[in-house]
């Protein structure tokens, strides 16, 4: 297999006496969906927040494309090509889809006057989003629709699409389907599946084993901060996953 896009080497993080994450290593390759599972408090979100640059690891290294990175802020991680979509989604309801996708990195009219007057190239931004809609076969309403008018699943898709349109090679999704109904979940899961063919590495956190089994190529299990399993999805059943999470031995077949 080719070199991983993202590699975590023995990451550890403690909060006082609580060892939230203990020497966890993980490699993510382009076009791979990794299901990251574990019981409540297993350390999934803590691991995610270290990858996202929201908190700093006590020990261990984060390597992106062979380069060792020290993220101070979420923007550092984003610049390195890692986008994390938290439950909050980081979307502004009062802005439309295009405005949200380009928020904070608006394109300006090329040339000195464009830069001096801070004039946005609105047409170029729309064109880029239009292209993205087609490239990823995005099933979203018109791109001028305000995010306030979107459903939960559509918002998830916008948040993920923003990451991918900005060329992030790694997208981390912390429980993207937790608050969604059946149809909305389908919207998000099918989009995650489509990302695979676009050479994006996805780390997908979920408590729903069916969702994990549907989209993940590989599954990685955390228990009390330690990685207790890492292997291909195809060999495991839902019962196996639950057993790994809770620490019960896998029932002998």
């Amino acid at each position: 297999m080719s070199a991983p896009i993202l590699e975590l080497r023995a990451l550890s993080k403690s909060f006082g006496p609580v060892h939230a994450v203990k020497t966890v290593s993980l490699a993510a390759h382009a076009g791979e969906v990794i299901g990251l599972i574990g019981d409540n408090g297993a350390g999934k979100s803590t691991l995610t927040r270290m990858i996202a640059g929201a908190i700093r690891p006590d020990q261990g290294d984060i390597i992106v494309n062979g380069q060792k990175e020290h993220f101070e802020t979420a923007q550092d991680a984003r610049r390195a090509g890692i986008e994390t979509v938290f439950q909050t989604l980081a979307l502004v309801p009062g802005l439309d889809i295009v405005e949200n996708i380009f928020l904070g990195r608006e394109l300006l009219v090329p040339g000195a006057t464009g830069r001096a007057t801070r004039t946005m190239d609105v047409a170029a931004m729309r064109r880029r989003v239009e292209e993205g809609y087609q490239r990823f076969g995005l099933n979203l309403p018109d791109m001028r629709t305000k995010v306030a008018a979107l459903s939960g699943g559509q918002r998830q898709v916008v948040a993920i699409a923003r990451a991918v349109l900005w060329g992030s090679g790694v997208v981390v999704l912390d429980e993207p389907t937790a608050a969604l109904g059946v149809k909305q979940t389908e919207l998000v899961l099918s989009f995650i599946e489509r990302l695979r063919s676009h050479k994006v590495a996805v780390i997908f956190i979920s408590h729903n084993m069916q969702h994990v089994m549907r989209v993940a190529d590989r599954v990685c299990v955390l228990r009390l901060g330690r990685k207790v399993h890492d292997g291909p999805m195809s060999k495991l059943s839902g019962t196996d996953l639950v057993a790994l999470m809770t620490g019960a031995t896998i029932a002998a077949q």
Partner: peptide
């Protein structure tokens, strides 16, 4: 026409974001 307009909406509507 400038990014400021969107930024102001973001500050007023969803400051943490």
């Amino acid at each position: 026409r400038a990014p400021l307009g969107r930024h102001m909406i973001a500050v007023g509507g969803a400051k943490d974001t």
